[in-house]
Measured scan of single mutants.
Amino acid sequence: ATNIVGKVKWYNSTKNFGFIEQDNGGKDVFVHKSAVDAAGLHSLEEGQDVIFDLEEKQGKAYAVNLRIK
């Protein structure tokens, strides 16, 4: 899925991951530091509006192509 809109539920910059809540009511999506770095960001803030693509690997969904809304 592409261009999914959501809000950062939480992001832990020490542990380098967090979760994004989808605006469409879907399951929360894992986001890793690598996606944050690829977006040219240092971190994510709770409540921040983002747009992302959804990829699945080994049955787990995660956010890629992250951008600030």
Rank of each mutant, 00 (worst) to 15 (best):
A1T: 09
A1W: 11
A1N: 14
T2G: 10
N3C: 04
N3M: 10
N3P: 05
N3Q: 13
N3W: 06
N3Y: 06
N3I: 03
I4C: 04
I4N: 08
V5K: 14
V5N: 15
G6H: 01
G6V: 01
G6W: 01
G6S: 02
G6Q: 01
K7A: 12
K7V: 09
K7L: 07
K7N: 05
K7P: 02
K7I: 09
K7H: 15
V8A: 02
V8M: 04
V8F: 03
V8H: 01
K9T: 03
K9W: 02
K9M: 05
W10E: 02
W10D: 02
W10N: 03
W10L: 07
Y11W: 09
Y11N: 01
Y11V: 03
N12F: 10
N12G: 05
N12S: 15
S13H: 15
S13I: 10
S13W: 05
S13D: 11
S13Q: 15
T14Q: 14
K15V: 12
K15C: 04
K15E: 07
K15S: 08
N16V: 03
N16Y: 10
N16P: 03
N16G: 12
N16L: 07
F17K: 02
F17G: 03
F17I: 05
F17V: 03
F17C: 03
F17Q: 03
F17H: 08
G18M: 02
G18I: 01
G18Y: 02
G18D: 00
F19P: 00
F19M: 08
F19H: 02
F19S: 02
F19K: 03
I20W: 00
I20S: 00
I20T: 01
I20P: 00
E21I: 08
E21W: 08
E21G: 14
E21Q: 09
E21L: 14
Q22S: 15
Q22P: 15
Q22V: 14
D23G: 12
N24H: 11
N24C: 04
N24M: 09
N24V: 12
N24P: 11
G25M: 12
G25Y: 10
G25F: 12
G26V: 09
G26I: 07
G26Q: 11
G26W: 10
G26E: 12
G26R: 10
K27A: 09
K27I: 13
K27T: 09
K27S: 06
K27E: 15
K27D: 08
K27M: 07
D28P: 08
D28W: 06
D28I: 07
D28G: 07
D28M: 11
D28K: 05
D28R: 06
V29M: 04
F30S: 02
F30P: 03
F30K: 02
F30I: 04
F30Q: 02
V31G: 00
H32I: 02
H32W: 04
H32T: 04
H32Q: 03
H32Y: 08
H32L: 05
H32M: 07
H32C: 03
K33V: 13
K33C: 04
K33R: 08
K33H: 08
K33E: 04
K33A: 13
K33Q: 10
S34M: 14
S34I: 10
A35N: 05
A35T: 15
A35D: 06
A35L: 03
V36F: 06
V36D: 00
V36E: 01
V36W: 05
D37H: 13
A38L: 11
A38F: 11
A38C: 04
A38H: 09
A39T: 09
A39K: 03
G40M: 08
G40H: 09
G40L: 07
G40C: 04
L41S: 05
L41E: 08
L41D: 03
L41H: 15
H42N: 09
H42S: 14
S43C: 04
S43V: 13
L44I: 07
L44F: 08
L44G: 01
L44A: 02
L44W: 03
L44E: 01
E45W: 06
E45F: 14
E45H: 13
E45L: 07
G47E: 06
G47T: 05
Q48E: 08
Q48W: 13
Q48D: 15
Q48V: 09
Q48A: 06
D49C: 04
D49R: 11
D49L: 10
D49M: 09
D49P: 12
D49S: 09
V50P: 00
V50T: 05
V50M: 06
I51N: 07
I51Y: 07
F52V: 04
F52H: 02
F52T: 02
F52K: 00
F52S: 01
F52E: 00
F52C: 03
F52G: 01
F52W: 02
D53L: 03
D53Q: 08
D53M: 04
D53A: 05
L54I: 13
L54K: 14
E55F: 15
E55G: 07
E56H: 13
E56Y: 10
E56P: 05
E56M: 15
K57N: 11
K57S: 15
K57A: 11
Q58P: 07
Q58T: 06
Q58N: 12
Q58F: 07
G59R: 14
G59T: 07
K60H: 14
K60C: 04
K60N: 08
A61N: 13
A61M: 14
Y62M: 11
Y62S: 09
Y62I: 07
Y62N: 11
Y62G: 09
Y62Q: 09
Y62K: 09
A63E: 00
V64K: 13
V64L: 12
N65E: 05
N65K: 10
N65M: 05
N65V: 03
N65F: 06
N65Q: 05
N65P: 00
R67E: 06
I68H: 08
K69E: 14
K69C: 03
K69L: 07
K69I: 06
K69N: 13
K69T: 12
